[in-house]
Design a protein around this nucleic acid. Structure first.
Lengths: 209, 209
DNA sequence: CGCGTAGGTGTACAACGTACATCTACGGTT
DNA sequence: AACCGTAGATGTACGTTGTACACCTACGCG
């Protein structure tokens, strides 16, 4: 009845995302998000309960407009497409990766993505316990791979430091790190995912329930 | 030459871990860690550069005494054992999981674990690009699964909330969440890992380089 | 033309990481 | 046995963070 709201959760999410994209995740605070919107800090608390909810808002905004349709192809190809889109979205906003990892089971949009993968698995004949394992394994790999890219990128400073510092204590690791620099993140993700999907196809078929 | 050190990095790590085990990860601060040791807060900075280094110290302490020997068995079984030990260690100190995820490429002990898995892969005939993909995929799954357990446990409040709240918007997800509650974390991890390893075995054999 | 209600905000506080200056106690020299 | 330089230990203090709380304020309805 009184005084209409001047902000929207969408707008708040977009502003917070803008801060992250411009100045990095560490720069996101209640104050910087509010300043980006031109309002006082405490105003945000009329829209979100606390910082965690703001974070969920952000990743929801990033994942919200994911295309969840699947191509007319085999289930492995379908899942590859879905996973690729999620990865593309997170790569477009590198800073949100830690938030995505933490809130992936809270964000409605992320849950919609999981629901979509479950739909594909179900159509492919996965049911019961086997479907549970397949879905959790897929999620573990996809988000684990995102985390790999974020905290220990193959081509970046991560392997550079690794390849140099540890050549004596970690001979195989150092050699592998050197080879790894020739592998693009896309290739790594794609090949790894392919292996996981092959494994899911073969496994568990002899134990129906 | 003057005044010998009164603390050890080992002792500091143990104290910080004790705080985490007793009061949770959020309770770990420079002040609480120092109080646990009976020294002033700033004394810690004679041993670590900043909080990040303290965190690395903690996870190094947790992973340090992992048994890295492998049984006399096939490479898949060997990797299963290695992964299982890492998981067991992190389950014994639930609170360190986020630290382990963040610093897994920084902690020497964690790198030793990775080196061990690489050794197994190498003996199994993995080389070049195929070895890189296998190792990164394995790491992605293992740490992704830990994160699954930590942030969205199957049997805990995570699926409980999911199974209830989303029964209309996420039909498959809700059904799966209900089934998932009958699956122990150990089974989930073991079955998922088995699938990943099978996939790694099959994949990439026809592309030698 | 008020008036109540809910949105907006300013102030304030506890807790955090840590820079800095200072105190202190020991090993090596005499 | 006395001292002295050095590096460990510490107390204080500052900037930042999330957010509780009390206070204004502007609009839709009567």
């Amino acid at each position: 009845m009184p005084r209409p709201r001047s902000l929207t959760r969408q707008g708040i999410a977009a502003a917070a995302l803008a801060v992250i994209d411009r100045d990095g995740l560490d720069a996101l605070t209640m104050r910087t998000a509010a300043r980006e919107l031109g309002v006082a800090t405490m105003s945000l608390y009329r829209y979100v309960a606390d910082r965690d909810e703001l974070e969920v808002l952000v990743i929801d905004h990033v994942v919200a407009d994911l295309d969840l349709s699947v191509p007319d192809a085999g289930w492995r190809e379908r899942l590859t497409v879905l996973a690729g889109r999620l990865r593309a979205a997170s790569c477009a906003h590198r800073g949100v990766v830690p938030l995505l990892l933490r809130h992936r089971h809270t964000s409605p949009a992320a849950l919609r993505w999981i629901e979509a993968t479950l739909g594909v698995l179900t159509e492919a004949g996965f049911t019961g316990r086997r479907r549970v394992v397949a879905q959790r394994t897929l999620v573990a790999f996809v988000f684990g791979a995102l985390q790999n890219e974020y905290y220990g990128p193959l081509a970046g400073a991560g392997t550079a430091a690794m390849a140099q510092l540890s050549i004596k204590d970690f001979p195989v690791l150092a050699a592998t790190a050197r080879q790894a620099r020739e592998l693009s993140p896309e290739e790594e993700f794609h090949d790894g995912l392919a292996a996981v999907l092959v494994g899911l196809e073969r496994s568990g078929v002899e134990e129906p329930k």
